[in-house]
Nucleic acid binder design. Sequence first.
DNA 1: ATTATGCTGCAACTGGGTTGCGAAATGTAT
DNA 2: ATACATTTCGCAACCCAGTTGCAGCATAAT
Lengths: 142, 142
Amino acid sequence: MPVFTTTQVEEILRRNNLSVTDSRKKILNVFLSMQGAVAHRDIERKAGEKFDRVTVYRTLQTFVEKGIIHIIPTTDNSIRYAMCKDCTDGHHHDNHIHFICRNCGATLCLDDITNPVIHLPSYFSAEEVEVIVKGICRNCRE
Amino acid sequence: MPVFTTTQVEEILRRNNLSVTDSRKKILNVFLSMQGAVAHRDIERKAGEKFDRVTVYRTLQTFVEKGIIHIIPTTDNSIRYAMCKDCTDGHHHDNHIHFICRNCGATLCLDDITNPVIHLPSYFSAEEVEVIVKGICRNCRE
DNA sequence: ATTATGCTGCAACTGGGTTGCGAAATGTAT
DNA sequence: ATACATTTCGCAACCCAGTTGCAGCATAAT
């Protein structure tokens, strides 16, 4: 697990006009050091230190608002988050598909695979497409 | 709202080896008379009579197991259900996309629009695709 | 160092969903 | 139709995820 310098993490926070606090640094570090999507439990397990649930929720919400992370669509009533690539304050542009591994549960952003164009009857006004592919990921196949 | 004969509803229940009870009939009737997907609240509002929450949950679960209804994928942490077209006992084949209206919240199965084929790198084993389109539905545009 | 701001954590609450169990309804055999 | 076995229902109680208000504490600005 790569470790990021304090400066890198602080840099991201400052760039977004967020005060640099202990919990924000630790939680952000979890995102930076994980490949796939992050669920609540991941943070509780990996942030190294116990934060109040409320702090975790509020921090995640703040990060979403600032465009640092985005909510990953799932279909099983769970919420996951991942780092944004090109999102800014309040404007998310996450036009990629998501992969969920049936085996290990990992959720991955496939940034290179953009959403397909779906043709609907013209009386629908389609604004946003979300594609979720479920299967077995690389690690679990080997 | 079309009304279905008692016989039709009972027929479906019997075909699935379910005893014909009052709540099952009423809940099934909600599905048959609604266009789009059904959420819990819809049932509580439209079943005409108040059932215990527990009964609603257990009935829905039973219907899913029997292949009478299927769970519709959403990305907002809500659960919705819709009638199955060709599903049988425990085997669901719902290879169509779903539309969610941002305005009225209606969720529709677009049975005629099958899921696109998504090409992933070969080290993924893709087994299932779910597509959710969000926008404005016909009724809300007029 | 001091003050203003805003973040954190506790406690309490909400809402969705589940479980156990006795009561009531359904199906079945007589 | 009646009686019995079986299934389903509804209540109460519970669990868990997520939220809110508020007092105390850390951060940032002066």
